[in-house]
Amino acid sequence: MSKVAPLLRLAIEDNIGWCSAVCTAHGSRETTSRDAWVNRGASPPFYPNIISRQIGVQDEIETLIGEVAIANQSKRWGIKDSFCELNLSDLGFERIQSGSWYGGTLAANAEPTDWNIIRSPEHLRSWEKAWGGGEDRIFTENLLLDHRISFWFKGGDDAIEAGFISFDSGPSLGISNWFSQDDRSLVQTGALQAANSVSRRRPIVCWSADDALRETGLSDLGPLQVWISPTA
């Protein structure tokens, strides 16, 4: 198997840690092997059941697909193909998204004065609605007790203008789920700078389908794609 570059490995493992935290909050049944992270239970919307961890694991992923499908017969579920190399079309899967991993260490910046962190369950619900969440909760209040996770926001409690999530895996700081009400970019809202202020000079990592991230100072680490299972 090909060796995975260290920064790409950090990005993938940070993302697995974040997905695991969200799925655990919903009662997951997870295992992690050399080849993949897998949740054999039901993952919440927008979160995968399988994330590949190595290159060249087509056969192993196909085995896991059979196991996950048994526990998810009534719903569609996803696979994050971390290296954009799996061929799942013959199994009825549809490729619904492609993007790139990004990562890097950014220059130190001043403490942001217009970004804050969610502290209460009620405010977390407001954050999720501003992000675009529906009636079914994805980000449950017990995530507020996880010291690795911060829900950031800009604006007033009743008028959240922008937000993102940071996940501290230890070796790196992952960012995800960024949004702004006026469609400004990650950099334009100052979200990346806010994350960098707490990174302690560790790499910031993420994945995105937005090519503009190449202009942030983060390096493009390689492609990924997301597959979704056939209709139940």
Rank of each mutant, 00 (worst) to 15 (best):
I12D: 06
E13Q: 05
E13S: 04
I16H: 07
W18S: 09
C19N: 08
A21E: 03
C23T: 12
A25S: 15
R29N: 13
T31D: 06
T31L: 11
T32W: 00
S33N: 04
W37K: 03
V38P: 02
N39E: 10
N39Y: 09
G41K: 03
A42M: 13
S43Q: 13
Y47N: 14
P48L: 05
N49M: 06
I50K: 09
I50Q: 11
I51K: 15
S52C: 00
Q54A: 14
I55L: 05
Q58W: 06
D59Q: 13
E62V: 10
E62A: 02
T63K: 13
L64N: 02
L64H: 02
E67F: 00
E67N: 03
V68M: 07
V68Q: 06
K75M: 08
R76I: 08
G78F: 07
I79Y: 06
I79V: 15
F83I: 07
F83L: 11
C84N: 14
L86S: 05
L88H: 14
S89D: 09
S89V: 00
D90I: 00
G92R: 00
G92L: 00
I96R: 04
G99Y: 05
L106M: 03
A107V: 09
A110M: 07
P112Q: 01
T113E: 10
W115A: 01
I117G: 01
